[in-house]
């Protein structure tokens, strides 16, 4: 199945998917909601120029769909995100595409029921593991 990469600002790198067509969308409405200014736009834009990806401006979901259609792609590759606004867009796009989340290098593998009420509790569980190099993470 043909794939494209949808790059978003929670994961601005290509690494293992350099050979695929990749798109970034500057979405004015979303940037306003997230409170972005020109400094942030400049930082992101410089990163994209270096990555040599396609940059467009408009509604994210519509532009991703248009770009995918241009490349006859049915799969979207993307980096994980915890941004609620972006997760909503991904849920929307998942109605049209197979979503293939790219694996992140592991910082720590957290146990299923991790107590996040305080950093100290989190660190008691994962601190020793964090001192192992990625190659030795489970």
């Amino acid at each position: 199945m043909r794939a494209i990469v949808w790059l978003h600002e929670d994961g601005l790198r290509l690494d293992d998917c350099r050979e695929l067509p990749a798109l970034f969308v500057f979405d004015d409405a979303l940037m306003r909601r997230l409170g972005y200014g020109l400094k942030r736009i400049t930082f992101i834009y410089e990163t994209l120029v270096e990555l040599e990806v396609t940059i467009r401006r408009g509604d994210t979901a519509s532009e991703v769909q248009r770009f995918a259609a241009e490349h006859g792609a049915e799969t979207l590759r993307l980096r994980p995100t915890v941004c609620p606004e972006r997760l909503a867009i991904i849920a929307d796009l998942a109605r049209h595409f197979a979503i293939d989340e790219l694996p992140e290098p592991v910082f720590v593998t957290a146990p299923e029921r991790l107590d996040l009420k305080r950093f100290s509790r989190y660190w008691r569980r994962v601190g020793a593991q964090a001192m192992l190099p990625t190659a030795k993470q489970g």
């Binding site: 790198r13 200014g37 020109l38 400049t42 930082f43 992101i44 270096e50």
Partner: peptide, 19 residues
Amino acid sequence: FADFAEGDAPPATLPGGRR
């Protein structure tokens, strides 16, 4: 992106990108 301008002073930011 004039609508996103943050004042008159030119931004003096860290450059983006892996390099």
